[in-house]
């Protein structure tokens, strides 16, 4: 299954790079929006078919908040360790990784600080989304459902949600949506804080 996902993304990259004209880019946003809405509708339907859905969510309750909390801490800490390995300023590496997969916002927010950092933020967060999508089936099967959600970060509420829904269960799908929402809200708050504290 991971192979099919990888193949779809790689075929797309190949088509985009070698075959399609650059003018096609403006249509892809609309196609993705429509496709995403159709898939989210199906995800909702899958959730609705689970008869014990409300009981499960009631039991999970506030406990599910630890997932986005772990995602945020992991994003910052992972960047710091990455900075140590690459010998680049820790604050800059942590700011880049605290984009949590939201590549458009993180690269825009870092554009004023430095162009190089903005490009790095874009790449890191695009890669996070692509690797997460490819690795979800493997991580869900061999490590755990919640761990597969944690990789997605901010994309857990949209582009990664259909994949999470397909390879995990209904509880995890709800946790994924909540994780994505909280991660998304936290990026514009945490990224400047990290840059100020560690980048100064």
């Amino acid at each position: 299954m991971s192979f099919n996902i990888l193949l779809s993304v790689l075929l797309g990259i190949g088509f985009g790079y070698f075959i399609l004209p650059s003018g096609f880019l403006e249509y892809t946003g609309t196609i993705i929006d429509i496709g995403l809405c159709v898939l989210l509708f199906f995800v909702g339907m899958d959730l609705g078919r689970q008869k014990d859905f409300f009981q499960n969510i009631k039991e999970l309750g506030y406990k599910m908040i630890f997932v986005p909390f772990g995602v945020i801490i992991g994003g910052v800490l992972g960047g710091i360790i990455g900075g140590m390995v690459l010998h680049i300023p820790l604050g800059e590496a942590a700011a880049v990784s605290s984009g949590l997969g939201w590549y458009t916002l993180s690269s825009i927010m870092l554009a004023d600080y430095s162009n190089e950092l903005s490009v790095l933020a874009f790449l890191v967060n695009v890669l996070r989304e692509v690797i997460a999508l490819i690795a979800i089936p493997f991580v869900a099967k061999h490590i755990g459902f919640i761990e597969s959600v944690s990789m997605c970060g901010a994309t857990a509420m949209d582009t990664s949600l259909p994949v999470i829904s397909k390879f995990t269960d209904s509880n995890t799908t709800v946790i994924s949506f909540v994780t994505g929402v909280i991660s998304t809200i936290s990026v514009p708050v945490i990224l400047p804080i990290i840059l100020n504290i560690l980048g100064g």
Binding site: I5, S8, I13, L20, G35, L36, F42, F122, V163
Partner: peptide, 27 residues
Amino acid sequence: LQNVCLYVLLFIMGIRIGLDDSVISSF
């Protein structure tokens, strides 16, 4: 249908990356 939609969506996401020259060159 859900599977088909998913793979088409991933394919289009790939196209977006491939069409963006700056992503490929900076990568």
